[in-house]
Amino acid sequence: MTLSALALAGVAHADGRTMPDVTGKGLVNAYQALNYDTTIQFKDGLGARRLVLWPGSWKVCGQNPAPGTPLEGKKITLTVVKDHEQCGAPAAG
């Protein structure tokens, strides 16, 4: 199963957790910080609408909600780019 299948918009579990700071981390590490069971929506940081098929080759450029925000009922969106790309770089093409 690919993580893109898990990236459907949904809300975090209501277990009292707060949003960790995952900006700048690899996507695998971000999943570890979110305990793998949290539903996450991805946004391509280059605006190319790519799907995350192999999380080990992506990194987090931005997050919503902000670190420290209670996760109860919140949708989580991570803005991601491939490891070799710069955050905020314009899309090639």
Results as ranks from 00 to 15, higher is better:
Arg49Asp: 15
Lys59His: 15
Gly16Pro: 01
Ala9Met: 09
Asp15Phe: 13
Ala12Ser: 02
Gly88Ser: 04
Pro90Arg: 09
Ala48Cys: 15
Arg49Ala: 13
Gly56Ala: 06
Gly47Met: 00
Asn29Glu: 12
Thr38Val: 13
Gln32Asn: 11
Gly93Trp: 01
Thr39Glu: 06
Pro65Val: 02
Asp44Arg: 06
Ala30Arg: 00
Glu85Thr: 01
Pro67Asn: 13
Ala7Lys: 09
Thr77Ile: 14
Asp37Asn: 10
Ile76Met: 00
Pro67Phe: 14
Pro20Met: 10
Asp37Phe: 14
Ile40Met: 04
Val11His: 07
Glu72Ile: 10
Ala9Pro: 07
Gly93Asp: 02
Arg49Gly: 14
Asn64Ala: 14
Arg17Asn: 03
Ser4Gln: 09
Arg50Tyr: 01
Thr77Ser: 07
Asp15Gly: 08
Thr18His: 11
Gly93Leu: 03
Ala92Leu: 14
Phe42Asp: 02
Asp44Ser: 11
Gly68Met: 02
Pro90Gln: 11
Gly16Ser: 03
Pro65Gly: 05
Gly68Thr: 06
Leu8Trp: 13
Lys82Gly: 01
Ile76Gly: 01
Leu8Gly: 14
Thr39Val: 12
Thr23Asn: 07
Gly16Arg: 07
Ala89His: 05
Ala14Lys: 10
Ala48Trp: 09
Lys74Glu: 09
Leu8Asp: 10
Gly73Ser: 05
Leu8Pro: 05
Ala89Lys: 09
